[in-house]
C-alpha cells in the first residue's frame, strides 16, 4: 500500500524527503498522473498540493517571488506578473488548457524541466533564481544552470523546490514571449522563446534569450545575446540575431517537426524579438 503524507510544515516535508528519497513528490499531478493506471505504483507520496509553505506570490525587494506550489491559473491572473513579467503570464495562459492550468504548478514545470516546458524559456530570459531546500539547508540556483540534460536537473534526492525569485526588469527592458504550436491550447510547443532586452536610445545594451524545444533542455541563446549587443533595434539587431542563432543551435527531428523547420521557426521567433514594434 502506498504511504501518503500531507506534511504539516516545511520541516516535516524536508525530513520526509531525507528519510524517503524514493517517495513521489506530488504537486498538481499533471505530469506525474498522466496514464496513472499504467504506471508503477509509488512506495509513498509526499503531497505538496496546496502546501502553504511553498504557496503564494509576493512582490517586494525589487523582485517577484513565486512559490513552487503556485498554479498557472494563479500566475496568469497575478497583476504584478502580468505587468512586469509578461512572458511568464503569457506562457501560463498557454500551458495546456483551463483544467491543466488549475492544477499544474511552477514547481512541477521546473521539476520536470522538459525541453518543451513552456515557462522555462521565460524563467531563463527573466533571470530566475530557484530557491531549493533540504534538511541540509537552503540554497539558491540560477535557473540557467538547473537543467543537466534531457529531463534531468540539479535537484538532489532529498531536496524540494521552494520558490522562483525573479528580479523586476528595469524601465528600459522590453520583454517578449512567443510559442509556436499546432493550435493555441493544449498543444506541445514546436518552438518557444522568451526575451528580456535592455535598450538605450534604440541600441541593444544587453539581452537574455531563452529558447525551448530546440535542444535536449531549455537553453539560453548566448551566441545571440552576444551578437546583438551594441546593435540598433530593428533590422540590424534582428539579422545579427538570426545569423548567430543559425550558427549556434542544432534542433532535432521528431514526430512533431523536422530539424530544418524548427531552425527556421526559431530564427523567425528570435529575429522578431528585435523588430521595432
Amino acid at each position: 500500500m502506498t504511504a501518503y503524507v500531507r506534511p504539516r510544515d516545511l520541516a516535516e516535508a524536508l525530513a520526509l524527503r531525507a528519510e524517503h528519497p524514493d517517495w513521489m513528490v506530488l504537486a498538481g499531478g499533471t505530469d506525474l498522473m498522466v496514464n496513472a493506471i499504467h504506471q508503477k505504483v509509488p512506495a509513498g507520496i509526499v503531497d505538496l498540493w496546496r502546501f502553504a509553505p511553498i504557496g503564494g506570490i509576493t512582490v517586494g525587494d525589487g523582485r517577484i517571488t513565486i512559490g513552487a506550489g503556485a498554479t498557472w491559473t494563479e500566475v496568469e491572473r497575478h497583476p504584478a506578473i502580468r505587468e512586469k513579467l509578461a512572458p511568464l503570464a503569457l506562457a501560463a495562459r498557454e500551458i495546456g488548457a483551463l483544467q491543466i492550468q488549475a492544477r499544474g504548478t511552477v514547481g512541477g514545470n521546473v521539476g520536470t524541466s522538459s525541453p518543451v516546458g513552456d515557462s522555462l524559456p521565460a524563467l531563463l530570459a527573466l533571470d530566475c533564481e530557484l530557491e531549493v531546500a533540504s534538511v541540509r539547508g537552503h540554497r539558491r540556483a540560477p535557473y540557467s544552470a538547473w537543467c543537466t540534460g534531457y529531463r534531468t536537473t540539479q535537484l538532489a534526492p532529498d531536496e524540494l523546490v521552494i520558490a522562483a525569485h525573479l528580479p523586476l526588469p528595469g524601465a528600459n527592458v522590453r520583454t517578449a514571449w512567443r510559442k509556436v504550436g499546432t493550435r493555441r491550447a493544449q498543444s506541445i510547443s514546436k518552438v518557444m522563446g522568451a526575451a528580456a532586452i535592455e535598450v538605450d536610445a534604440g541600441v541593444v545594451v544587453s539581452a537574455r534569450i531563452g529558447l525551448g524545444a530546440v535542444a535536449n533542455r531549455p537553453i539560453r541563446a548566448t551566441a545571440v545575446e552576444e551578437a546583438v549587443r551594441g546593435q540598433r533595434l530593428g533590422a540590424q539587431a534582428a539579422e545579427a540575431a538570426r545569423a548567430a542563432l543559425r550558427a549556434s543551435i542544432a534542433p532535432i527531428d521528431d514526430v512533431r517537426s523536422t530539424a530544418a523547420y524548427r531552425l527556421e521557426v526559431a530564427e523567425n521567433v528570435v529575429a522578431r524579438f528585435f523588430h521595432v514594434s
Binding site: L26, I45, D47, A102
Partner: peptide
C-alpha cells in the same frame, strides 16, 4: 475545474 484522471484521491 480539473481533470479527475490526473488527481490522486489522497489529495
Amino acid at each position: 475545474a480539473v481533470n479527475s484522471c490526473l488527481v490522486a484521491v489522497g489529495q
